[in-house]
Amino acid sequence: MSKLSAEPRELVGGAARRERLRRSRLYLVTDDTTPSEDLPGLLAAALRGGVDLVQLRRKGVPPDQLMALAATCREVCHAAGALFLVDDHVELAAAAGADGVHLGQEDTSVAEARSRLGPDFLIGLSTHDAAQVKSATSLDLDYIAAGPVHRTPTKMGTPAVGFEHVEAAARAAAVPVVAIGGLSLADAGTAIAAGADIVAVVRAICASSDPEEAARALRGQVDTAPAWSWIELNGEARKCPPQATVQGLLAGLHLDPTGLVVERNGVIVDRQLWAEVAVGAGDTLELVHFVGGG
């Protein structure tokens, strides 16, 4: 169990929450079918198995009826050193002492949630296409969820977007990307390889006869898949795929290389070497070009 479990909750500010989010890998979103009284036990098992981020989602239940359940779930998560978020209900998140809120495209806006919650709460946002990711990059949020990867009973009306959307989000976002939507043990690693930082599941754990073992197996897949690395690109946090080169990174960003100059860790990379020079974890890249000036 994480040593963070001993940390008093009062000391967990926004920075500490974001640091934990950066290290999170497996995200459990609760289903609508598990009875409320069984949920704390399910969560505890999943947390033992390696879940480090939980979202309480109960579609159709008014927030005032979720208060007691949310408070219990929060206690279970925090005791395990995991982050606890609430779906959609900003006030419930604050009242239940959650670490943040997850918003859909049709829910409260990110700006409004931020102004109501303040800077210390985590805010995540669902995205279903490139345009939504793009508008999300200018918002004050903490992670972007990309999905549904597959068609799921949870999101009946939403077409599956596949791993392509996960990859597009991973390339564009300066915050962690959560892959979600019908992911299972069979393709949790694929989601990580596509650029997700975190894999979110519902049924893969909730519908399992052994949630702890299901979580442990998923966590094993997530931890051993080839993960993308965080780099600093023109002062922004960005990710690059494993074994990336300067050339590959530029291509992935769909940037016009004409007139572009690349500096990696303070040293200019000759254009002739773009295809050979590797880019990886912790690298600082500057991409500059000519603009108007006097």
């Binding site: 793009k134 990059t137 940037l255 572009l260 991409l287 500059v288 603009v291 108007g292 000036g293 006097g294």
Partner: peptide, 18 residues
């Protein structure tokens, strides 16, 4: 003509005056 050197906008939306 004179020019300045600046970071490229990563989102590709910004067009240079050049």
């Amino acid at each position: 003509i004179t020019l300045a050197v600046r970071r490229l906008h990563l989102d590709g939306d910004h067009h240079s005056e050049l």
